Simulated assay, not measured.
Amino acid sequence: MTGDLYSIGKVEEICKITKKALRYYDRMNILSPDKVCNENGYRYYSKKNLLSVPVIRYYKQSGFKLEEMKAFLEGTTYDFVDKSFRKKIDELEELDREINLKIRSVKDWRDLIVEAQMVLENNVCDVAIKYIDNRRLIFLNQDFQYDYMDSIINIEFNNYIDNINNAITGPVIINFPSYKDKMNGKCNKMKIMQQTVLKCKEEETIEYGGWMAASCYHIGAHDSVDKTYKKIEDWTRQHGYICSEECYERYVTDYWTTKNTDRFVTEVMIKIKR
């Protein structure tokens, strides 16, 4: 310290800010030293200048770039600050929406992986009766040609979601009009469904759930899923249930997650009643 001036090393110590950052702030005309010695280039800062460091730190915490905070530090009108702050709030809220979308997408995908791991570890392949919660899913009617990879990853469906400015999460669910046709290789129509992240128009969605189903996990490649349908059909007949025509395949893990078809987990569901 020289008089009431502080060396750059002392500023680093007092303000917990690196010399590199201080030099950068100087180049950006954000925080310049009060004095620079001609002989050795040493930089010295006044106490008043030091008090700018917490202000800069707070602006950075609030998401402002150095270029944006320059006018604030130099002194400007409240009106300019208000407009700048409102603009920053809009930017941060949009960023928050994007981050929350990413967090939800990753969490939902991880939940499916955990579910699949538990099914595989415990070899869960028994038929069970379960209630399917009611909700609305976005959908698209399509032709079906038993090309599971094309149907599940589904470029046309993903383009449709982009066109309506939405995003999808959770498992792909495909509805087939007849489980018997599906089981016997005669199905040619399908309805792909998935949960949206953002709100969409009611006409873009379809009601899913609100009914009882005979459910069974199918482990392995999709081309042998007919065996699981037969298992469900036999089990429901033995237990006095009547299967409706409609059926659903909920892809817990598939081509999105692994290339090993032996590790695919698909939940097959057929609506039932007594």
Results as ranks from 00 to 15, higher is better:
93 E>V: 11
93 E>M: 13
93 E>Q: 08
94 E>K: 07
95 L>H: 03
95 L>P: 00
95 L>G: 01
96 D>M: 10
96 D>G: 02
96 D>W: 03
96 D>E: 14
97 R>Y: 07
98 E>L: 12
98 E>H: 08
98 E>A: 07
98 E>S: 10
99 I>K: 06
99 I>Y: 03
99 I>M: 09
99 I>H: 04
100 N>D: 12
101 L>Y: 07
101 L>P: 07
102 K>W: 07
102 K>R: 08
102 K>L: 13
103 I>P: 12
103 I>Y: 00
103 I>C: 05
104 R>F: 00
105 S>M: 15
105 S>V: 13
105 S>G: 04
107 K>T: 05
107 K>R: 14
108 D>I: 01
109 W>G: 12
109 W>F: 11
112 L>W: 03
112 L>Q: 15
112 L>S: 10
113 I>G: 03
113 I>H: 03
113 I>T: 07
113 I>S: 00
114 V>K: 00
114 V>E: 05
115 E>Q: 06
116 A>T: 10
116 A>C: 12
116 A>S: 14
117 Q>K: 04
118 M>I: 15
118 M>D: 15
119 V>R: 01
119 V>C: 09
120 L>N: 05
121 E>P: 00
122 N>I: 00
123 N>E: 13
124 V>R: 02
124 V>T: 12
124 V>D: 10
124 V>S: 04
125 C>I: 15
125 C>Q: 14
125 C>L: 11
127 V>L: 01
128 A>E: 12
129 I>Y: 01
130 K>C: 10
131 Y>I: 01
132 I>C: 11
133 D>N: 11
133 D>K: 08
134 N>Y: 08
135 R>Q: 13
136 R>I: 03
136 R>T: 06
136 R>S: 11
137 L>N: 09
137 L>C: 09
138 I>P: 00
138 I>V: 15
139 F>V: 15
139 F>I: 14
140 L>E: 11
140 L>K: 14
141 N>K: 15
141 N>D: 15
143 D>K: 11
143 D>M: 05
143 D>A: 09
143 D>E: 15
143 D>L: 02
143 D>T: 11
144 F>T: 03
144 F>K: 00
146 Y>E: 12
146 Y>V: 07
146 Y>N: 11
146 Y>K: 04
147 D>H: 03
148 Y>A: 08
148 Y>K: 04
149 M>Q: 15
149 M>N: 12
150 D>N: 13
150 D>G: 10
151 S>T: 14
151 S>I: 05
151 S>C: 14
